[in-house]
């Protein structure tokens, strides 16, 4: 494990394996909270934060609890339980300790409780066989990738707001078409990262 491999993991999380645009996880907040730039960036930062917390908790649970008792098949249900409790806990702590951060992230935290992107990144960290540090870097990359996708799409949507699409496409249909085009553009990164550090 070198610095190079860590950078590789980070960049692949942001660009190549972008969870929203390439793996289609976390589509709900992607479509729901991307109307305004400020909300989109708030949601992206909150997701990044929760992904890091969730990985920090679930990786030890998987390694030291589940694998020890040969309970790998309980992974999904235990992770859901732990992440949901964790997000609630983080919200309570933030409300007391850092009210200013709670004001800016607070409304998004309950939405993330059952976000599949958070569950996805924790499970993928295990299946990819990452160690703890690699898992954290991967979560950071995926979170930043989510933030990037949200911010990009908020920009695209602000342009859509100023157009008059045909009536049958107004609202969600045109948003989904735009999302698919943004997603296509990310295929351009497919082989970038492997050659990034050559």
């Amino acid at each position: 494990m070198t610095l190079k491999s860590l950078i590789l993991i980070l960049m692949s999380g942001v660009l190549v394996n972008n969870y929203v645009l390439q793996r289609f996880l976390g589509i709900c907040p992607f479509l729901g909270v991307s109307k305004k730039f400020q909300q989109a960036s708030g949601m992206g930062i909150a997701v990044t934060f929760v992904m890091l917390c969730a990985t920090a908790v679930t990786w030890p649970i998987q390694t030291y609890l589940l694998e020890r008792f040969n309970l790998g098949y309980l992974q999904t249900i235990v992770f859901i339980l732990v992440i949901a409790a964790l997000v609630q806990f983080v919200e309570l702590v933030l409300k007391k300790v850092l009210p200013s951060l709670h004001r800016s992230l607070g409304v998004y935290l309950p939405l993330i409780t059952t976000n599949c992107a958070v569950l996805g990144v924790t499970i993928n960290n295990i299946t990819d066989g990452y160690n703890f540090l690699e898992s954290m870097v991967s979560s950071l990359g995926v979170g930043l990738g989510f933030l990037l996708a949200m911010v990009l799409f908020a920009g695209v949507r602000s342009k859509i707001d100023n157009t008059a699409p045909p009536k049958c496409l107004q609202g969600l249909p045109v948003t989904l078409i735009a999302a698919s085009i943004v997603s296509l553009s990310f295929y351009g990164f497919a082989s970038v990262v492997e050659n990034l550090l050559k």
Binding site: L65, V78, K96
Partner: peptide
């Protein structure tokens, strides 16, 4: 039994944690 106990332990731990947090971090 072991999976049941492990899952129950995780669940109870989370419940206790949240209850304590709700008490000590209440605003």
């Amino acid at each position: 039994l072991i999976p049941l106990l492990v899952l129950a332990a995780v669940g109870i731990f989370c419940a206790v944690l949240l209850t304590l947090a709700a008490r000590f971090f209440s605003v």
